[in-house]
Simulated assay, not measured.
Amino acid sequence: MPWRLSRLHAAPRAQWRPSQDKFTTRQLRPGPRYRSTSSQHQIDNQTNQLNRPNYNPNNEESLSDLGHKIVSDYAHLRPKYEIPKLPIVLAHGLLGFDELHLLPGNFLPGIAYWRGIREAYESHGIPCITTAVPRTASISERAQVLMDQISSKLPTSKDGKGREVNIIAHSMGGLDARYMISRLCPSPDLFRIRSLTTIATPHRGSSAADMLFRDIGPDLLPHIYRLLSRMKIDYGAFSQLTTKYMYEHFNRVVPNHPEVKYFSYGASATPHLFSAFRISHGLMDVIEGPNDGLVSVRSSKWGEYRGTLMGITHLDLINWTNRIKLLAGRLGLIEQTFNAQAFYLAVAEGLAKEGF
């Protein structure tokens, strides 16, 4: 048993609480809108209810609350999908990018974060915009760049006013989008967001991030931050993905916008022996329950939860499936139960049925 898990098993299995580790976190910048004390009190009460764990780790039935289990609904592409009225903006997660070129120039094809997803949308006539924000910057910094990119890439409507959009976000991209919607408040003259669909977004943080900071320790952490600063590498994102930060800071000051519809999906998988997610998955399974290796199902739930993708890891969700697994599926050695392009086309179709 890995030492991290043995240490967790040795601890009393009490009601789970967000991490109480003491480490430096960047405070979110105050938003532009004024709120009265009474309205802020209501928001605090709402977010407290949203953030409190709704299951007991000692209760197996509660731990396995996966909602609608999605097993093979998106195994294959269909010839036709309903097309949403509004364009889709894709927002990437931590360490993400739009397209990455390993060599200068265009000698080699770039590596896309949304592997084949944008092409699937375009082939079905769905307008799609991909964005690229600072990979490891704080949520507020990433959200500002996200807003600027949507504004610059989205063409204005015929009447000269801003257009309406749907946002689909993977992982941390969902937090960027929530902050942009709630705190930056894009002007209607720029664009208006009608819906936000988050996919494996850590709305309540990740215990994997908690363990990372616990292992580093408060003495070593300032030295690492100074080193990253000298290397001109942003580090604001890391501490903001902990359960403590999301519980005590982010969700208290980033309420849902009443005019935006929120949807979410989660994923649950059991990584194979050589998977990069094997250790983190085992840790999170003990603390938070079913997870995709980086984000738990419980943390993924926000707004209208549309289901849990079974047997899917955090990278499978953006079509970064292990090549050996893909080959085994094509040879018929294992059953293919998930096609990322089919999933995202179905998400777009769901938005179309909602009138978006």
Rank of each mutant, 00 (worst) to 15 (best):
L8N: 04
T25P: 06
P32W: 15
S39M: 15
S39C: 14
H41G: 11
Q42M: 15
T47A: 13
N48A: 14
P53E: 00
N56E: 04
S62M: 10
S64E: 12
D65Y: 14
I70A: 01
D73F: 12
Y74H: 09
Y74K: 01
A75Y: 12
P79L: 13
L94V: 12
P104R: 07
N106A: 02
N106Q: 12
F107E: 03
R118S: 09
R118I: 01
Y121K: 07
I129Q: 02
T131E: 02
V133L: 05
V133C: 13
P134I: 04
T136H: 08
S138G: 11
E141Y: 12
R142T: 06
R142G: 10
G160C: 04
R163F: 03
S171E: 10
G173A: 12
G173R: 08
C185M: 15
P186R: 08
P188N: 12
F191W: 12
P202V: 13
M211T: 03
L212K: 09
I233W: 10
Y235D: 11
A237Y: 13
T243M: 06
F250C: 12
R252T: 01
V253K: 02
N256K: 14
H257M: 14
K261E: 15
A269N: 15
T270E: 15
H272I: 09
A276H: 05
F277L: 15
L283F: 14
L283C: 10
G289V: 08
P290R: 03
D292L: 02
S296N: 15
S296V: 10
S299L: 02
W302P: 05
G311S: 03
T321R: 05
L327N: 06
G329S: 00
L333C: 00
I334D: 01
A342R: 00
F343C: 07
A346W: 06
E354G: 07
